[in-house]
Write a protein that binds this DNA or RNA. Structure first.
Lengths: 147, 147
DNA sequence: ACAAAACAGGACAATAACATCCGGTATTGC
DNA sequence: GCAATACCGGATGTTATTGTCCTGTTTTGT
C-alpha cells in the first residue's frame, strides 16, 4: 500500500521497527501476532513473516500454542535500531566498486565514496539509538500510541 | 540484475548519478545514449528513460537528430548529488506520522523522529556535494574510469 | 485426551521497480 | 529531398517486494 519510507527505508523495516518497539513497551506480557498487528497497524499475515525473521535472528523469542506469543529477547538498552534493520533488510556499506572497475578495488571513486559516507551517517544514527532511548525520549509523542 | 545499492539507494539513482558524472566530465562534446551507456555500464534502453527524466527536470539538455546527444545543463559546481537524487527518486523527509496517528501530527514520535534524522544526515551529505567536488576530489580513483 | 489458541511455512496474488523492444518523430549532412 | 542518426514514448516482459491464504504443528487448559 504505502511505498517506501522517505524513499529510503523499506516497508519491511518500518514494520519490524514498529513491532519491536511495541514489544519493548510490553516487557512482561507475551504479545500475539494479532495484538501486535492491532497496535502497529501492520497487516497481520505479513507481520507474521517479519516476526519469523526477527525470531530466526534471536531478536525476539517465541512461545507457541495457547497463551503463546512473542517477547523481546534482549534488554531494550542492548538493542538498537541498527540491530533490527540489519535483521530484516540489511544496510550494506559500499566496500567494492558497483561497476567492478578493477582499479577501484582498493579505493572507491569519489562518487561511491560519497554515497558510502551517506550510508555511514545512517549507520551511526541507527547504531547509537537503543530502544530504551526511543522510549525515554523527551519527545511528547509516544511511539505507536495515539494519545 | 544487481539490486539496491547499500540496501538504500535505488538502482535508478545509481544509474542517474553515473550518467550525470559522465556528462560532467565531457563538458564540450554532446554524448549519445550509446556513449553514456558504454562509459557507465548502464543498460542503454533503461538509461534512455533515466535521461528523459533528467531532461524533464532540466538537469541535462538534449539535442535530437544526427550528431545530437546530451549535455549537462548547469555548471558542475551548481549541481549537487541531491539535485540528481531528487529528480529521479526523491528522498522525502518524514513530516507526518506514517501510522497517521492524529496526536503525532505536530510532533513525530521518537521512532520516526530518529528515522527522519537519519534521512536528514543523508540529505546534508548530498546537498553539500557538487559535481565539481566529485571530480576534483583528491581520491586517486577517477569516477567511472578504469585506469 | 482433546479442543482451542497460536505460530510455521509453503503457495499464491498484487504491485512496484527494473529492463527491453519497437514504431514514431526530429534533425542533420549531403 | 533523402537517408542516416538519435531521441521519444508506449507496450510489454521480468524480477523483487509486499501482502494474503491455507494447511500443518506445537502447546495449553480443562
Amino acid at each position: 500500500m504505502a511505498s517506501k519510507i522517505g524513499g529510503m527505508f523499506s516497508q519491511t523495516v518500518e514494520y519490524a521497527l514498529r513491532a519491536i518497539v511495541h514489544l519493548a513497551k510490553q516487557p512482561d506480557a507475551l504479545q500475539t501476532t494479532a495484538q501486535i498487528s492491532k497496535a502497529t497497524q501492520v497487516p497481520s499475515a505479513y507481520l507474521s513473516k517479519v516476526l519469523q525473521t526477527l525470531t530466526r535472528d534471536g531478536l525476539v523469542e517465541v512461545k507457541r500454542g495457547v497463551s503463546g506469543g512473542y517477547l523481546l529477547n534482549k534488554s531494550p538498552d542492548e538493542m538498537t535500531i541498527y540491530d533490527v534493520v540489519q535483521c530484516v533488510d540489511p544496510l550494506q556499506r559500499i566496500r567494492t566498486c558497483p561497476l567492478e572497475l578493477s582499479s577501484h578495488r582498493k579505493r572507491l571513486c569519489s562518487l561511491h565514496a560519497k554515497m558510502d559516507s551517506a550510508l555511514e551517517s545512517i549507520e551511526t544514527v541507527f547504531r547509537t539509538t537503543t530502544l530504551t532511548e526511543l522510549m525515554n525520549s523527551p519527545n511528547p509523542s509516544i511511539p505507536l500510541c495515539n494519545v
